[in-house]
């Protein structure tokens, strides 16, 4: 027991801090943070606090909603590439290639500027109930980000699903499980469990992709700090705070997935 606690004090977040050079680096980091906090201008934070918080919330909401919806829709894309009939597998494969082969920024612009300029020409669409959706920016952003998650996660799931040992699926079949039940109870959980570290990395990549929606007038974290820069003429400070916020968000995602991995360890 005593040994356990001794190990715990030496390791924090899996890192050993008690090397001399690490202590010096930490002191230097503290000095840097202290000088940044005292020397630079931070008066604008009080003024923009609520705007920043709601923008960060919007980023988190966009990340979580697109990733969950995209991941659920990615399951059939991964599945048909493993088991599906050939034509369906080819459709899924080319969908993945097209989305993964073009920049996300261009995709967002294709949906927002491209299709957004085509919709008004359709007869009678202005009177229909979907018109309010088509004239705001967030459905386009949500759609583009979800498609991107579908393509990338479809590829991840393809590998994950084909990596589940055959014996486990045969055992489930021998127990008399229906195919759909095998998928939801055995195949998918095992596939996700084995690829949790990869999925964690993909969530961070998706987090890094969310600022692109700022280019189609959505006020997310990136956009709010651009506005602050334009309104206050301050260059460094908003950029530094924005960088810090993204670092914290990425750190939180990493912690959550480390926890999940520990919870659902391969036993």
């Amino acid at each position: 027991m005593g040994h356990e606690t001794a190990r715990k004090t030496r390791y924090l977040f899996g890192i050993r801090w008690l090397f001399p050079h690490r202590m010096i680096l930490l002191v230097l980091l503290c000095l840097l943070v202290f000088s940044l906090v005292t020397k630079l201008d931070w008066y604008w934070i009080a003024e923009y606090k609520s705007a920043i918080l709601s923008a960060v919330w919007k980023t988190i909401l966009l990340l979580v909603s697109t990733f969950i919806v995209g991941f659920i829709l990615a399951v059939p894309i991964g599945l048909v590439q493993v088991t599906g009939p050939r034509p369906l597998a080819m459709v899924a494969h080319s969908f993945c290639s097209i989305i993964r082969g073009t920049p996300l920024l261009l995709q967002i612009w294709i949906f927002y500027y491209g299709f957004g300029s085509v919709f008004p020409e359709i007869e009678g669409i202005r009177e229909s109930f979907i018109w309010p959706f088509l004239t705001s920016a967030w459905p386009y952003a949500f759609f583009a980000l979800t498609l991107s998650v579908m393509a990338y996660e479809g590829e991840v799931l393809r590998g994950a699903l084909s990596g589940v040992p055959k014996g486990e699926l045969e055992a489930a079949k021998a127990m008399g499980m229906k195919p759909f039940k095998i998928l939801t109870r055995i195949w998918l959980p095992r596939a996700i469990q084995r690829t949790l570290p990869i999925i964690g990395g993909e969530v961070i990549i998706q987090l890094k992709a969310t600022p692109l929606v700022a280019t189609i007038t959505i006020i997310d974290t990136y956009a709010i700090f651009s506005n602050i820069r334009l309104e206050t003429y301050i260059v460094y400070e908003p950029l530094l705070l924005m960088t810090l916020i993204y670092l914290i968000l990425a750190g939180a995602v990493t912690l959550i997935f480390t926890f999940l991995e520990r919870q659902y360890k391969n036993r």
Binding site: K208, P211, A214, Y222, Y236, Y246, A250, G251
Partner: peptide
């Protein structure tokens, strides 16, 4: 670690606007 956590768009701003300053 920092590069894998910070969005490329933010890095572009940092290098484009802050670095020359």
């Amino acid at each position: 670690t920092a590069v894998r956590a910070i969005p490329e768009l933010v890095l572009i701003l940092l290098i484009y606007f802050a670095l020359p300053n």
